[in-house]
Design a protein around this nucleic acid. Sequence first.
DNA 1: ATTATCTATAGATCTATAGATAATGC
DNA 2: ATTATCTATAGATCTATAGATAATGC
Lengths: 211, 211
Amino acid sequence: MSTPAPPSNRFERRRAATRQALVGAARRILAESGDTSVSIQMIAEQADVGFGSFYNHFASKDALFDEAVLDALEEYGRAIDERLEGVDDPAERIAFGVRLSVSMAGTHPETMQVLRHQGLAHIQSDRGLSPRALDDLRTGAAIGRFSFASPEIALAALGGSLLALLHMRSTRPTADSDDDARAMAEAMLRMLGIPPDEAHTIASRPLPVRD
Amino acid sequence: MSTPAPPSNRFERRRAATRQALVGAARRILAESGDTSVSIQMIAEQADVGFGSFYNHFASKDALFDEAVLDALEEYGRAIDERLEGVDDPAERIAFGVRLSVSMAGTHPETMQVLRHQGLAHIQSDRGLSPRALDDLRTGAAIGRFSFASPEIALAALGGSLLALLHMRSTRPTADSDDDARAMAEAMLRMLGIPPDEAHTIASRPLPVRD
DNA sequence: ATTATCTATAGATCTATAGATAATGC
DNA sequence: ATTATCTATAGATCTATAGATAATGC
């Protein structure tokens, strides 16, 4: 169910390709301007798909844009999972998660711009970074590494801070993105109750490399 | 300049009233749905203003919505200033600022809903909470009370966390808003380098009362 | 006399659908 | 034979403006 069944025949593959072209166009539009008032005609044109085909797949513009955001969230979540595989310490996972997200703004600009525009509404989503971070927060609290009033508050602080950083960097890029990301990761660890010197150490560790 | 000159005659007062009716309608629309694709016709109707009058005041919908956001930011900033008058400790100002903002979601729902929808784009604005918080952050760092990599990062964490909390509470309201706000204020003080027990104490102090 | 507001409307979209065309399943 | 896509278009908006109406300045 989470992985859609691979299309069994050419019909379904063609249908899936058209749908994905529309989703891709919607993602590009969300990333570039965040402006969802663009016409369905323009979307279809961007997707290089006949105008009428739109209604074969989506009942409305909103339905398409909703799916486009979910699509970006899924991609984001998978990428984070891959890079955090084998990292066990919740504090390290949180710090790396922040820094990987900022680095993805460079490597996956479209995905992260979509989330920058739409992420605040999805901080409690069960896709993307949120469910993973929530796990880490709960684990960290259970083993006495973190302290906070509630995981939800901690998640709001974490997600909101990350989005604000992505936004800031996207409007006023500074020199080294990982400098900012390390500083934010350190701030988040302190927020979670990690002693300042340890927060600094953990936030400074080299990022796990891609497999 | 910051306070617009009081309208000198009836013409200007009427003109200002029409303009403010449009801004008010835009604020209500931004607060309720955040959907700026509503037609100019609907906006004029909401404002109880003739359709053509719109163009007497604004060249486009975007121009109106931009002003509506600035208007909400100004109101927010003034309200915060009033309540924080006489509070000198930067840590206390930051903690109260967070808690007052959450409480304003109850007392000034429209204003805060506008900012919830549009705030992320204005975290570096020179209106609203940001310039005030930035002052407090710099002062706190100067007197050795705060420690952080840069005021901009700290501001991003503060503003993003607050917006995420407002968002969370607006979609899933919990029992006591000041409980959440105190927890967030405490988290923010720890993030800024205040020792955990002191952060807890400061975040628990009674809010300054309105004059 | 001057200025703002309002009403009416032309022209430009935009959405949703119907019907024709093209591609694949069996 | 079935299904998806594409083209064309009707009808419903929506924007921007022109010109009439109402209110105030001096």
